[in-house]
């Protein structure tokens, strides 16, 4: 589904990613771990199309198409979803309206019918219950005045409603207490499917206790320095990143 080859990128001439290779197939969950500043979030942002990064080398193919050549909204319409580390507050934009228009923009681009208001309401209520997002927040402005946990739940709600093919979770676990973490992980697990791939970017192992990844990659200094199964995450949890970085340096 996603094929990243020798991807190098930076900001203002400063190299951040230095030759990333990653293959993600439908049905797989990949965890990308690494210390602060390793380039994890940059990778997530570049996949979603955020401005400000310059790709200096390599390519990314998504479902056979050149992902980097696609506009941000085009990626979303083709099924790429980024759950953000810092979801943006949109004062005055009603959360329910936002979700409905988002879904309909995507459906329309695929030549599908827009969903009527009643069915949509039913769907969103159901999904909100699943991710334990207070229904009152649906009537409020998007993320405005939401707590950290509510913002992350709202991201997962969007993901559940939009049903992407490739979901990228950028440090969705950061700043969550254990209950919120569990709700978010449940929400993500519910979306696991043979047709869907996920890239879970995280600093800590703890999210992976709930979300069992098929593959774990360690990113350091803009490179994937090690890949393995879920046991790699446990090893990192026990020993930290230091040993790995030393081993790579040696």
């Amino acid at each position: 589904m996603l094929s990243i080859k020798h991807l190098s990128a930076g900001v203002d001439g400063k190299a951040i990613l230095k030759g990333i290779d990653l293959e993600v197939r439908a049905g797989e969950v990949h965890a990308v771990m690494g210390p602060n500043g390793s380039g994890k979030s940059t990778l997530a942002h570049i996949l979603a199309g955020r401005d400000g990064y310059t790709v200096t080398d390599g390519e990314v193919r998504y479902m056979g198409r050149d992902l980097l050549g696609m506009e941000i909204e085009e990626r979303a319409r083709q099924g790429v979803f980024l759950a953000m580390q810092y979801p943006v507050e949109l004062p005055g934009v009603n959360n329910m309206t936002f979700l409905r228009e988002s879904m309909n923009a995507i459906r329309k681009s695929r030549g599908e019918e827009e969903m009527d208001a009643v069915s949509f309401m039913k769907l969103v209520r159901e999904k909100a219950r699943q991710v334990k997002l207070d229904e009152k927040l649906l009537k409020r402005s998007v993320n405005t005045g939401f707590s950290g946990g509510e913002k992350k739940r709202n991201e997962i709600l969007q993901m559940a409603v939009l049903e992407p093919f490739l979901a990228i979770l950028d440090e969705t676990d950061s700043g969550l207490d254990i209950d919120a973490l569990r709700n978010v992980a449940d929400g993500v697990n519910r979306l696991r499917s043979p047709h869907r791939a996920m890239i879970v970017v995280t600093h800590y192992q703890r999210l992976l206790d709930y979300l069992e990844p098929d593959h774990v990659h360690v990113l350091a200094g803009g490179r994937i320095v090690r890949s393995g199964g879920k046991e790699l995450a446990l090893e990192l949890e026990a020993k930290g990143y230091g040993w790995l970085l030393e081993e790579v340096a040696a």
């Binding site: 401005d51 909204e73 979303a76 988002s102």
Partner: peptide
């Protein structure tokens, strides 16, 4: 960016 990443 947030809105465009949601298909708008």
């Amino acid at each position: 960016f947030y809105l465009r990443s949601r298909g708008f």
